[in-house]
Amino acid sequence: MKINTESCVISGKQTVSVSHQEIEWNNKGTLLKISRGGICGSDLHYYQEGRVGNFAVKAPMILGHEVIGTVVHTDSPELHEGQTVAINPSKPCGHCKYCLSQEENQCTTMRFFGSAMYFPHVDGGFTRFKTVDCAQCVPYPAEADEKVMVFAEPLAVAIHAAHEAGDLQGKRVFISGVGPIGCLIASAVKTLGAAEIVCADVSPRSLSLAAQMGADTLVNPLHDSLDGWKEEKGYFDISFEASGHPSSVTTCLEVTRAKGTMVQVGMGGAVPEFPMMMLIAKEISLKGSFRFTTEFNTAVSWLANKVINPLPLLSAEYAFTDLEQALIFAGDKTQAAKVQLVF
């Protein structure tokens, strides 16, 4: 079966277009009709800079890894035509040492939607139709709100970060940087039993969203003092750094109590003067958090069952044919948190 489709494509020199393509389904995997997609920071980096880190766009590539859709055809007995599914953008190899240890996010040959890590690049989900492995399809009830369900991937990132922190029941939590991921971490740790959640950001708009997503106290480091939380070797049991800014890394170490845990979620460059002695002397456990494993299924369940409401983060919706306008708006952080494309 061959289907003509339209895809949101980025090419060299940061140009984007909606191109017509033909895809083929050979009775293998699952053919999906994409209904909605969320624009992520990596999509913006590809559009604004033509790369994410060291991975530059060398050929036209379809963007998007936060997508949901409907089953058109499938070879899986566990799926059926017309079924609504969230699409896990991860495609691990299944046989490396990490996959065999249920640590699939560390797969040595991970194929992740919309990534220029490999050449040829791995196309993403901003396309009207896409064929995926059946295992990448996580069903959800047809009556669930599409606007909510498309948050499955970023929520999975947040839940994984929360799990990396360990037991959150009754814990005092600090989150530095409350873009969409930081806000979703606030909701995740609240759901998992955190007793107190303090969020810090230099954006009043972001802080306002954090309040709607579960924060108890809001702090703007440009105006508010954090000194009280730094006394006696720190106050918080757990901190999450979700901005990637060097000063934010230092702040998290300062306010985390001795023997506490800091989870690094934000992606940034080098921290020139990393406070190594503070980390050592306070015996802080520093953990990285990268993507997710089983948390994708958890995120779909939470959203379908209205455990959390991510809609305060939805800033705008655009038809997928207005891709460039959507990317421009999403890149304006004075206005936008999450922007969704409708297919």
Rank of each mutant, 00 (worst) to 15 (best):
H121A: 13
I328T: 08
A270Y: 09
A326T: 06
A258P: 01
I197E: 13
S243E: 07
A337M: 13
A152H: 00
A299W: 00
P60H: 02
F126R: 04
K190N: 14
A161G: 14
R36T: 09
G94F: 12
N26G: 07
K259C: 13
C252A: 08
V18P: 08
V71M: 09
L286T: 09
N297Q: 10
S42P: 01
V255K: 06
E317V: 03
K230N: 10
T321W: 01
A161H: 03
C107P: 11
K190A: 10
S76M: 08
N309V: 00
K190F: 08
K338D: 13
I308L: 10
A162M: 09
C134S: 15
D167A: 11
V202P: 06
Q136C: 02
K287L: 11
G288K: 01
G182M: 03
F174H: 07
M149G: 08
F290Y: 14
Y235V: 11
T131K: 12
K58Q: 13
V150N: 07
A336I: 12
N220Q: 11
L226D: 12
G124M: 00
I34S: 00
F240Q: 09
S187Q: 10
K97G: 13
Q169W: 08
V219Y: 13
P139S: 06
K287E: 11
V178N: 10
E81T: 13
G38T: 11
S285H: 05
K130D: 06
E81H: 06
T191Y: 07
A194T: 05
K306R: 10
Q83I: 03
S90Q: 15
F174V: 08
P272E: 10
Q212V: 11
A242P: 14
L31M: 04
M61R: 04
L226Q: 14
E153P: 12
Y318A: 09
L314N: 05
L31Q: 03
E104V: 11
L222D: 15
I181L: 13
R128M: 08
T30F: 01
I3E: 04
L314D: 08
I181T: 14
